[in-house]
Structures are given as structure tokens and as C-alpha cells.
């Protein structure tokens, strides 16, 4: 699937993001998000146990790791959708501990979900408009006086049309979001996230279930975000895409950050191979075919 993707041009990679030798928890020159000893357990299972991690500003960072590594849980913790047992984390120098999810979003940290959350019985346009922040008409008392928010509404609509055109959804604007295909919903969710002019966009598997043709345009959209000055953190299983667009890669396994580095060097880290095979792979009945695929891609990469 991913081999069908033919990059039209090689994106410009950001380099010199870290200080000192690359490794788990390495310091960044200009971090936008930092997390310290963030831990989340579900009963006896430790889903996330991150000692220290920094996400570089103005770059595209990929968070990879096998299924169940804790990537989504980590996303939920960072964005206020879940509470850790302990730990502290900061966004743009402001602590995010105990900040509710909606406030995190208002600070400029917008996320999307692994299971797409398009608002089915709202039109595509209403979905987009909902993404804009600071709307006067969202106040119950002002909502009854349309002349107070009409102008802002028009501006929001204009911006939404612009974004929808960019994401090739402009012909669908009056349709219910429920009528979109899975891939189109991914696009809509991403476009909607951009309505608020975020500074950090966190995408949980933006490419999952999207066909190769659309994947190419999604990749370009993500690269676009960087060129507009946003920082991106995304979870992805497809190594070709990670290699193609990521400036920095963070590898998670069993809740911990096990490796960090630029996409080329990180693949050579034995910890990554271990992560994908599992520490006890010799006791497994057999190796998961998905993992073999991933490993092949890693090795392909280095040839």
C-alpha cells in the first residue's frame, strides 16, 4: 500500500533539533512540549511511564511504537482527556497538569482522535465552524442577538471555505459529515482542528484507512502545517510516511520512550527492533506478521 506513494518532491527536513547525543529523553533546542515522569496505570498494567520527553517546536515529530505501546494513552494524558497517576507536563512554558481538555485546546494544543470523531449529524460546514475559537455567538445571551456575531460568523465561514478547498472537501460543505467516507472524515477532522490556528497539532494515526492517493495529499497537508509555523506530533504505523515527513522520531514501547532520533539513525537503534519484536519474542508462538512487515520496512529504509 505505502509503496504506491511516490513523493513528488523531497520535503525539507529540519535538523539540529536536539542538544547532545540523541537518545531517550534528549533535550531539545526549543521544546514546545515537555513531560516529566508521566505515569498512567490501568489496574496492574502500566500503560504510560515516560521519564522525560521534549517535543521540538516548528518541526514534525513522529511517535511510533507497536500496538498497545501507550501512544494514544500518552496523547490523552497530554491533552487533558485522561489523568495520570503522577507527573507534570508543560506546553509553551505553562503547566498543563489538572488543566481540563477544553482549556488545553484553547491554549493552542489541538488533537485529533485515532477513531475519527466527525460530528455526523452536523454539516461539514458546521463541523468546520465549530472549530473556530473565541466565538461571541457561542454565549447563550449573545446568541439571541444575531447582529452581535453575524460579522464574525461570516469571517469564520470564509476561513472554513478556504480550508475545505485546500482539503478538497468544498463540494461537500452542505452534506452531513456522516455521509463522508472514512478517509474524508479524517481530512475533515484535520481541517476542523486547523480552524483554531493551533500552535501544536497532535494527530493520532491521521493516515489510517486513507487510500494511497489521499495519503499523498494528507502528507502534503502535514508538511504544509510545518511551513506555516506549526509544530506537529503524530502517531503513525507506516514507516515510509514517517521517514518521508518526520524531522524527529520518538519510539515508545510498553509505555516507555525507548529511542529517539532523526528518522534515519533511529532505525538503526537495536532498542527499536526490540520494541517491535517485544522483549520476550523468543517465547512467543510466532512473530506477528505485522511486526515482520515493520521490520522489513526498517531494514529497507537503511539500504
Amino acid at each position: 500500500m505505502s509503496s504506491d506513494v511516490t513523493p513528488t518532491s523531497k520535503p525539507v527536513k529540519s535538523t539540529g533539533l536536539h542538544v547532545g547525543e540523541a537518545g531517550p529523553g534528549v533535550r531539545k533546542v526549543d521544546p514546545i512540549l515537555t513531560a516529566d515522569s508521566v505515569k498512567r496505570t490501568f489496574g496492574g498494567l502500566t500503560a504510560v511511564d515516560v521519564a522525560h520527553v521534549e517535543i521540538p517546536r516548528g518541526a514534525i515529530t513522529a511517535l511510533i511504537g507497536p500496538n498497545g505501546a501507550g501512544k494514544t494513552t500518552f496523547f490523552n494524558l497530554l491533552t487533558g482527556f485522561d489523568k495520570p497517576d503522577e507527573g507534570s507536563w508543560e506546553f509553551d512554558g505553562r503547566s498543563l497538569a489538572h488543566v481540563p481538555a477544553y482549556r488545553v485546546a484553547r491554549m493552542g494544543l489541538i488533537r485529533t482522535f485515532q477513531l475519527t470523531k466527525a460530528l455526523g449529524l452536523l454539516t461539514v460546514m458546521d463541523n468546520m465552524k465549530l472549530g473556530a475559537k473565541g466565538q461571541g455567538g457561542e454565549n447563550l445571551f449573545r446568541s439571541v442577538l444575531p447582529f452581535l456575531w453575524r460579522k464574525q460568523e461570516d469571517e469564520i465561514e470564509e476561513k472554513a471555505v478556504e480550508l475545505l478547498t485546500r482539503f478538497k472537501l468544498d463540494t461537500k460543505r452542505e452534506d452531513y459529515a456522516a455521509s463522508l467516507s472514512g478517509g474524508q472524515r479524517k481530512l475533515l477532522e484535520m481541517a476542523r482542528a486547523l480552524m483554531s490556528d493551533p500552535t501544536l497539532v497532535m494527530l493520532d494515526e491521521p493516515m489510517a484507512g486513507v487510500n494511497p492517493a489521499l495519503t499523498q495529499s494528507l502528507l502534503e497537508h502535514i508538511l504544509d502545517l510545518k511551513s506555516q509555523g506549526m509544530s506537529v506530533l503524530f502517531v503513525e504505523h507506516d514507516m515510509h510516511m514517517v521517514r518521508h515527513i518526520a524531522d524527529w522520531v520518538i519510539v515508545m514501547a510498553e509505555g516507555k520512550i525507548v529511542a529517539e532520533g532523526d528518522p534515519h539513525t533511529v532505525m538503526q537503534d537495536p532498542a527499536v527492533i526490540d520494541a517491535y519484536l517485544g522483549a520476550h519474542h523468543d517465547t512467543d508462538i510466532g512473530i506477528d506478521t505485522e511486526h515482520v512487515e515493520v521490520l522489513k520496512e526498517l531494514i529497507d529504509d537503511e539500504q
Binding site: A105, L119, K133
Partner: peptide, 22 residues
């Protein structure tokens, strides 16, 4: 109004609306 849009969004999926800063 935009207020109505938010509550209809909540009816559909409140986490999505929360993620948009409401």
C-alpha cells in the same frame, strides 16, 4: 446560532467538541 451549533455537536460527540476548546 453558534450556541446551538455547540450543543448539537455535544449531542453527536462531546469529546470531539471538548477537543475544539468548548
Amino acid at each position: 446560532s453558534p450556541w446551538g451549533r455547540v450543543i448539537k455537536g455535544i449531542r453527536e460527540d462531546e469529546d470531539a467538541v471538548r477537543a475544539l476548546g468548548k
